[in-house]
């Protein structure tokens, strides 16, 4: 009997929390997206699709396309940089691995806004980067690094890279080395071993890492604010403007719903292609 009370309470606790703080808020956003505003800015209960129709304006379509593209690019760069790093990390002696892993996390204890400002002073016209390049004789005069698309990309990759490294590392660390050795014994070269053994076996880590980078990348409005120019408006900036500055909540809510819809579309396409991939691997 007591075991049953325990069981029910621990399950209820988690379920109720998630329903109250995740499910209900999202339903509220969905409801809000169909509401309107009167002249004085108060929310009106006159359900319509107006907010969604307003989002079809090319300006907003461009914001969405730009954000998704940048998030995708960030994810790919993080994967390219993070995979070899996680791989080498997993090959280090077991005693140094936790130390190195902690060193990956330590910068995160300094809030990312502070670190983004540090990147800004690094990239500024008279900042460290330009001075170094001039001192090395690579350039003659300062080049424009700040307020460009590349600056935003660098900032995104910097803030999100550890989210890629950690899941990749835990997947690669679990990899049974004997399988790779077996493939080598059977005559597979370096690339074939990687492509047919290591990569499929570490795929869960790759997926987890990509999702953990892609999803937050859509919302990091402060990076575009601090490092980017006015052309680099992202979905995150748009939502922040609508909710905190313009206070057009229904419109912001509609944008949020569209964003979730696009992500679900992405995820299902991804899940589908993954199924194809694994079906190919294991006939």
């Amino acid at each position: 009997m007591r075991a049953n009370v325990f069981k029910t309470s621990i399950i209820l606790l988690l379920s109720v929390w998630l329903v109250v703080f995740v499910l209900v808020p999202n339903v509220l956003v969905l409801v809000a997206s169909f509401l309107g505003r009167d002249e004085s800015g108060f929310i009106q209960f006159s359900p319509s699709f107006d907010n969604y129709l307003r989002l079809l304006d090319p300006i907003y379509v461009r914001v969405f396309a730009h954000s998704l593209g940048l998030a995708l690019l960030t994810t790919l760069v993080c994967l390219g940089m993070g995979y070899p790093f996680a791989y080498f990390l997993a090959q280090c002696r077991p005693s140094v691995r936790p130390v190195l892993l902690t060193l990956v996390i330590v910068p995160f204890w300094t809030n990312s806004l502070i670190r983004t400002y540090a990147i800004r002073s690094l990239l500024a016209a008279k900042g460290l980067m330009n001075n170094t390049l001039i001192a090395l004789g690579l350039i003659d005069e300062p080049i424009r690094l700040l307020y460009t698309g590349s600056a935003v990309l660098i900032g995104m990759v910097y803030i999100l890279l550890p989210f890629m490294i950690l899941p990749l590392f835990s997947a690669i660390e679990k990899l049974d080395r004997r399988l790779v050795e077996a493939a080598a014994d059977l005559g597979a070269g370096r690339w074939r071993r990687f492509w047919h053994v290591t990569l499929p076996l570490t795929l869960p880590g790759i997926i987890a890492g990509c999702l953990l980078v892609f999803m937050p990348a859509l919302g990091l409005f402060f990076i575009a604010d601090v490092l980017g120019g006015s052309r680099d408006l992202l979905v995150g900036n748009f939502l922040k403007d609508q909710f905190l500055d313009a206070r057009d909540w229904p419109f912001g809510a509609a944008a949020s719903v569209v964003l979730i819809g696009l992500l679900l579309l992405f995820l299902s396409a991804y899940a589908y292609s993954l199924k194809q991939f694994t079906a190919e691997e294991k006939p």
């Binding site: 703080f21 808020p25 999803m215 919302g219 979730i260």
Partner: peptide, 30 residues
């Protein structure tokens, strides 16, 4: 094993995968 176990796991996954900005907006509305 209990009723709604899959739903709970689904909800956990959704929370894990929600972009920060979406969660921020929805919590503010709540």
């Amino acid at each position: 094993r209990f009723k709604g176990r899959n739903a709970l796991q689904g909800l956990l996954f959704v929370t894990l995968m929600s972009p920060d900005i979406v969660m921020a907006v929805s919590l503010l509305v709540l």
